[in-house]
């Protein structure tokens, strides 16, 4: 019994950074951006978080800075989006860049080679007076700091947000940007805020790794949690109601692979659990063809020419309009033909 509670407790901790990454991915996806830069946001959050926390000797300041670092990357994506840069390509570049940059900065300025371990106490766990002494509840809630609870609260907040007017607008922007724009919704601004928010959330997930639990930073410490988060968001069909269980699948699979060894399950079996969970999850997602459509649509949306240019600054003359792709409602073909009547 105790071992099982300890397992759950461990699973919650391992789920937390994945949950943040998954929420970030979900918000981006709902805004119509296939955001593959989550990994770099998590890593940047982990790095900046511990750096600032160590400098300020205050973990909360570190977490806020981590959110800021993720948000800056989100902002970068939003501006690139506005310039018409392919976000998929950019995101992959960013993931490599942030990884190398953290290693470079560690080597050059922090003296560490693989590890930066400042003199800093990680965020202390929250102790509930009374509860912590109870038999099952106590161990279950042990060693969980405020970021863990923030993750849960965030799920509820995002679920509520999707039911507000702004949330509905975000979904409309993501799903049908032209429809949203013609209904007077600020498409570009909505995407920008979604990317910034997603970046901040992913950054906090990174801070949980460095400031939150370990009090140190290591090379590539995000350890693919950004990608796992994207997978979890897909598995949750980008719905807040499913995001916690979906992230939990990966966190608890990881915990199981560690804990089952204690009851003499052979390591070569337990090793398979996280990969197996990911595989089964992806197959489940694949079987739902609608979500595959979602993915391909996201891909298309995130890497196609920006509609803003057509809607906000229509081409001033038909000669230039004629080099733009058709499909912008009905205004193009008419003008193209005009030139032919000469």
């Amino acid at each position: 019994m105790n071992a099982f509670v300890d397992f759950l407790n461990s699973g919650i901790r391992l789920t937390t950074p994945i949950l943040f990454a998954a929420i970030a991915s979900m918000i981006s996806a709902r805004a119509g951006v296939l955001n593959l830069a989550i990994e770099s946001k998590v890593l940047a959050g982990a790095f900046v978080g511990i750096l600032v926390a160590a400098g300020a000797q205050n973990t909360t300041v570190g977490v806020v800075a981590a959110a800021g670092a993720g948000a800056v990357i989100g902002l970068l994506l939003a501006f690139a989006d506005r310039l018409g840069v392919d976000l998929v390509v950019l995101a992959i570049g960013l993931n490599i860049l942030v990884l190398q940059l953290t290693v470079y900065l560690m080597r050059s300025y922090l003296g560490g080679v693989g590890t930066f371990s400042p003199d800093l106490d990680p965020i202390p766990p929250i102790v509930f007076p009374g509860l912590s002494e109870l038999p099952v509840v106590g161990p279950l809630l042990a060693r969980l700091n405020w970021i863990v609870y923030l993750g849960f609260v965030l799920v509820v907040l995002v679920a509520l947000f999707f039911r507000t007017r702004s949330g509905r607008h975000l979904i409309a922007v993501g799903e049908a940007p032209i429809a949203a724009a013609s209904a007077g919704l600020p498409v570009a601004r909505t995407r920008l805020w979604a990317l910034v928010a997603a970046g901040a959330i992913a950054g906090i997930g990174g801070a949980y790794l460095s400031v939150g639990d370990l009090g140190l930073f290591t090379r590539n410490m995000s350890g693919d949690r950004g990608w796992i988060g994207i997978t979890a968001a897909l598995l949750a069909l980008n719905r807040p109601a499913f995001i916690l269980p979906a992230a939990g699948v990966f966190g608890f699979a990881s915990a199981a692979s560690i804990r089952l060894q204690q009851i003499d399950v052979p390591a070569n079996l337990t090793q398979f659990i996280p990969q197996g969970a990911a595989f089964v999850a992806l197959v489940l997602v694949g079987i739902r063809s609608t979500s595959r459509d979602d993915l391909t649509r996201l891909w298309r949306n995130s890497s196609r020419l920006r509609l803003r240019k057509r809607l906000r600054n229509p081409p001033p003359d038909p000669a230039r309009a004629s080099s733009a792709p058709s499909g912008a409602g009905s205004q193009t073909p008419d003008e193209h033909d005009r030139t032919t009547h000469h």
């Binding site: 901790r13 391992l14 639990d213 370990l214 090379r219 410490m221 350890g223 990881s254 560690i258 090793q271």
Partner: peptide, 16 residues
């Protein structure tokens, strides 16, 4: 022993 699935750069998993 406790094995980590080949995770050599994931202190969070080592910690757990």
């Amino acid at each position: 022993p406790s094995y980590l699935n080949g995770e050599f750069s994931d202190p969070s998993v080592g910690q757990e």
